Amino acid sequence: METPLVSIITPSFNSEKFIAETIQSVQNQTYQNWEIIIVDDCSLDKTLSIVTKMALLDNRIQLFQSEKNSGTGIARNTALTKCKGRYISFLDADDLWKPQKLEKQIDFLKTNNLPFTFSFYDCIDEEGKSLNRTVEAPRNLSYRQLFFCNYVGNLTGIYDVNYFEKIAISSIRKRQDWMLWLTILKKIKTAQPLPESLAFYRIRENSISASKLDLLKHNFAVYRTFHGFNIVVSLLCMTGFLFTQLIIKPGYIKKVKL
């Protein structure tokens, strides 16, 4: 059975607390034909030494350093130039994959003849403890639905380079993943998730997901800068976004029974 190479893009910055566990979650994959491209954005902690030691023991781990701190978008684009795989996937330096993540997604792509997919994911806190929440998504995600809400967890998305070629990440400092999925959905119109939780998303105290005000600010920037809308249209789009967040999306967040 063919096992095409999967390239995993991981930007890092001051990630010493999480990076080893993140890499280990990749090493624990049942699908083993992968490379992880880590681009460090001038960390000031022990991130570099941790990754360097792990890379010496596993040549599938590749480490590159930014010349100056430029944000995750630039780091991801740098990693993109180094990728050699047929499939591009993403994993931030504090998130985790479940062991069968790649195997199940590659099989799902092949079986359904898809160029892109994603999955559900569980939420954990900064210490790795379960928050008893699973984030799901529409089973047939349309561009219109994605336009008003990013249903695709960055740590779950994977696309076929043979179909799309490599897709550059937006230079906007935040919400690059949403803009990437919008670019993909604009071409293929709809996307199907693998309807199973395959990853753990870590919610940190200083993250955008933890700050509703920052989330609104950065989403507004997507409508203004990425889509190029004027202020009035962007505000109307934000109204649709807020409606989706308050009324529609909560139905896709499931509480896990203890």
Results as ranks from 00 to 15, higher is better:
residue 125 D to I: 02
residue 146 L to D: 06
residue 98 K to L: 13
residue 204 R to W: 05
residue 160 D to G: 00
residue 146 L to E: 13
residue 129 K to I: 02
residue 181 W to Q: 09
residue 203 I to H: 09
residue 101 K to R: 06
residue 87 Y to V: 04
residue 171 S to F: 02
residue 204 R to H: 03
residue 185 L to C: 04
residue 181 W to E: 09
residue 207 S to V: 01
residue 208 I to A: 15
residue 101 K to C: 14
residue 100 Q to D: 15
residue 86 R to E: 10
residue 192 Q to D: 09
residue 147 F to T: 01
residue 163 Y to E: 07
residue 145 Q to S: 01
residue 161 V to G: 11
residue 128 G to E: 12
residue 125 D to Y: 13
residue 147 F to H: 11
residue 94 D to P: 06
residue 125 D to N: 12
residue 142 S to Y: 04
residue 89 S to I: 01
residue 202 R to W: 07
residue 88 I to R: 10
residue 194 L to E: 15
residue 180 L to C: 00
residue 186 K to T: 10
residue 167 I to N: 12
residue 126 E to P: 02
residue 118 F to A: 13
residue 171 S to I: 00
residue 84 K to H: 10
residue 109 L to F: 03
residue 84 K to T: 13
residue 164 F to D: 06
residue 181 W to S: 11
residue 150 N to D: 12
residue 197 S to R: 06
residue 82 K to S: 05
residue 89 S to Q: 08
residue 106 I to V: 02
residue 96 L to M: 07
residue 190 T to N: 11
residue 194 L to G: 15
residue 188 I to T: 00
residue 136 E to D: 06
residue 113 N to E: 01
residue 123 C to H: 15
residue 198 L to K: 12
residue 89 S to A: 10
residue 107 D to C: 07
residue 83 C to E: 08
residue 84 K to P: 03
residue 192 Q to S: 12
residue 99 P to V: 03
residue 112 N to C: 00
residue 125 D to L: 03
residue 135 V to F: 06
residue 138 P to I: 00
residue 203 I to Y: 04
residue 179 M to A: 09
residue 81 T to E: 11
residue 123 C to W: 12
residue 106 I to M: 00
residue 113 N to H: 12
residue 140 N to D: 13
residue 113 N to V: 03
residue 172 I to C: 00
residue 190 T to I: 05
residue 195 P to L: 02
residue 169 I to Q: 09
residue 179 M to V: 12
residue 209 S to A: 08
residue 151 Y to E: 03
residue 171 S to K: 00
residue 86 R to Q: 05
residue 211 S to Q: 05
residue 180 L to M: 04
residue 203 I to P: 04
residue 100 Q to K: 14
residue 195 P to D: 06
residue 97 W to A: 05
residue 172 I to H: 00
residue 99 P to S: 14
residue 198 L to D: 04
residue 161 V to A: 15
residue 158 I to C: 11
residue 152 V to K: 10
residue 96 L to N: 05
residue 131 L to C: 08
residue 205 E to C: 02
residue 112 N to T: 03
residue 204 R to L: 07
residue 148 F to C: 10
residue 157 G to K: 05
residue 212 K to E: 13
residue 150 N to I: 03
residue 212 K to A: 14
residue 165 E to S: 14
residue 137 A to D: 04
residue 145 Q to W: 06
residue 104 K to V: 07
residue 185 L to W: 01
residue 115 P to D: 01
residue 175 R to E: 01
residue 199 A to T: 02
residue 155 L to D: 10
residue 191 A to S: 08
residue 138 P to S: 01
residue 177 D to A: 08
residue 196 E to M: 08
residue 117 T to A: 11
residue 130 S to Y: 13
residue 119 S to H: 05
residue 166 K to M: 05
residue 127 E to H: 14
residue 151 Y to C: 01
residue 134 T to D: 01
residue 202 R to S: 15
residue 211 S to P: 03
residue 106 I to W: 00
residue 119 S to R: 04
residue 165 E to I: 11
residue 107 D to Q: 15
